[in-house]
Each structure stands twice: as C-alpha cells, then as structure tokens.
C-alpha cells in the first residue's frame, strides 16, 4: 500500500497499525500528535487504526515559534 506520510508517499509492504508506524519511525509517542485522514487520533487509539492504501498521515510536534 501507498501512504502519504507528512506529505511524502511511502510504500509499505505489510499490514501496519498506526502505533506500529510510530514505533517504526522511532518517534516518542509523548512528543507528537497524529492525524489520520484529517482526524486527530489520540495515542490510546493508535493500535486500533489499521492503515489502508492511500491513507494520509500527518505527524507533528512543537517547535520554536513566535
């Protein structure tokens, strides 16, 4: 399947849940916010979301800003 992750296409060759994706990217769950197809998904719900072809995922975090 092809995902769009933070605006870039990514090919995944196995079934993957949202929390597995976060783990595979070595991201700290407490520092990020995840949006799946324009809906914010809380950390507790990540395991319940199985990713599908053409899904859009945004992973964001806080940075310096004025």
């Amino acid at each position: 399947m092809i995902l769009t992750l933070n605006g870039k296409q990514e090919s995944i060759d196995r079934p993957l849940s949202l929390d597995a994706l976060v783990a595979a990217k070595e991201l700290c769950p407490d520092k990020i916010v995840v949006e799946h197809n324009f809906s914010i998904v809380s950390k507790e719900d990540w395991p319940k979301i199985m990713l599908k072809d053409q899904d859009m995922i945004e992973i964001v975090s806080f940075v310096g800003g004025g």
């Binding site: 990217k25 964001v60 940075v63």
Partner: peptide, 18 residues
C-alpha cells in the same frame, strides 16, 4: 511562551522544546 507546530522531521531525532 509561544511555540509553533510543524511536521516532525522523520529523518532525525529532534530535541523536545517543551
């Protein structure tokens, strides 16, 4: 104190500003 929100850089382990 203000901060901004951005896509995480998936290539690097950035420090947590908070």
């Amino acid at each position: 104190v203000t901060v901004a929100l951005r896509r995480v850089d998936l290539g690097s382990q950035a420090d947590n500003i908070l």
